[in-house]
């Protein structure tokens, strides 16, 4: 019988693609503090943009929590790892207020008479200064990633959207400014008249301003990539006296309408709807009028109107888990 003697298997004798898979499983802090310093071969593998991208998509999503009213409290990162909620201290000195994040990049704003915005990568301690804002002060800044194909990180572009408030003839006017990161030298002002003072809600690639005034309720939406605004009426029966609540749920915006103590109606603005330029459509109101709570949306409405989903309480838990 032929016995094949071979040296014991070690991490060095593994083919490169298997080592790659193993390193991908390491948390980012271990890669930066440990793995990339081990040897040049590991360093080369780790610093490849493809690895960075693959690792990013393999990483744990979580929330950055900052207490704006008490700067002595540390910024924390909350995530679920291995089925448990973990709260870790974010040992990074933010210069200003953390406004939002996208793909691990964070927008912060320092206010010293005029707003200055930065895009920060806390993982690499790199900062990118955004041009200073001309209008009085900005109310919030959001960061979006758009375009490009999923596999090519270099084709992706970032846009920052800022909500600012200017004083005009003694009254405050809200406006919205957009900046393509790395391309625009200054902020570009967009339409102003429909913006409300309410905190904008963001979903992937979209900013929404809900206007919830009785039966004429509507949602004003900005498609960040195309910079087109759309107005979507909230179906009749969802506004008015009934308690409603908007919730950004990742890709889409959901409207939760409380029917009674144990029942909610959930309406979801789907992506296809958001992509199309959408005018105020009276017929949509008819389709979704009161009394149709248990009726599924007609197939024809799926592409051009808000997708209506009905859920019991347990369904909601499943949906937003």
């Amino acid at each position: 019988m032929q016995m094949r003697m071979r040296p014991s298997t070690n991490i060095e004798s593994l083919p490169e693609e298997l080592l790659y898979d193993i390193l991908l499983e390491l948390p980012a802090e271990d890669i930066y503090k440990g793995a990339r310093l081990v040897c040049k071969k590991w360093y080369k593998m780790i610093c490849n943009p493809k690895f960075v991208y693959a690792h990013f998509h393999n990483s744990t999503p979580g929330l950055i929590v900052e207490c704006r009213f008490d700067s002595t409290r540390p910024v924390t990162f909350v995530a679920t790892r291995r089925g448990r909620i973990e709260v870790s201290k974010f040992n990074f000195e933010f210069r200003g207020v953390v406004w939002g994040s996208c793909n691990g990049l964070i927008v912060e704003t320092v206010y010293d008479g005029i707003s200055t915005h930065y895009i920060t990568n806390p993982a690499t301690d790199q900062r990118f200064d955004l041009p200073r804002e001309e209008p009085d002060d900005s109310y919030s800044v959001m960061l979006f990633c758009y375009g490009g194909c999923a596999d090519d990180i270099f084709s992706k572009k970032y846009k920052a959207v800022s909500m600012c408030c200017s004083t005009y003839n003694g009254s405050k006017i809200w406006s919205c400014a957009v900046l393509t990161v790395g391309v625009d030298k200054s902020w570009r002002n967009l339409l102003t008249e429909h913006l409300s003072v309410s905190e904008p809600l963001t979903t992937e690639g979209f900013v929404h301003w809900p206007h919830n005034e009785g039966e004429g309720a509507y949602v004003f939406t900005l498609n960040v990539e195309t910079e087109i605004f759309t107005v979507t009426p909230v179906p009749q029966g969802c506004g008015g006296e009934r308690l409603t609540y908007y919730l950004p749920t990742g890709k889409s915006l959901s409207l939760i309408v409380f029917c009674n103590d144990f029942s909610f109606e959930i309406r979801i603005f789907n992506e296809a709807h958001n992509r199309a330029q959408y005018a105020f459509d009276k017929s949509e109101e008819k389709k979704s009028s009161v009394g149709h709570r248990l009726r599924p949306p007609p197939p024809s409405a799926a592409g051009d109107g808000p997708k209506v989903e009905h859920c019991s309480y347990s369904d909601i838990r499943k949906k937003f888990k």
């Binding site: 060095e12 499983e25 440990g34 040897c39």
Partner: peptide
């Protein structure tokens, strides 16, 4: 792969080199 990565978690560079003979 995840199990091997777990071995390296929170370990110093020196530890990783010694452990894996790199």
């Amino acid at each position: 792969s995840a199990k091997i990565a777990q071995v390296m978690e929170k370990k110093s560079v020196g530890w990783v080199r010694r452990k894996f003979g790199i």
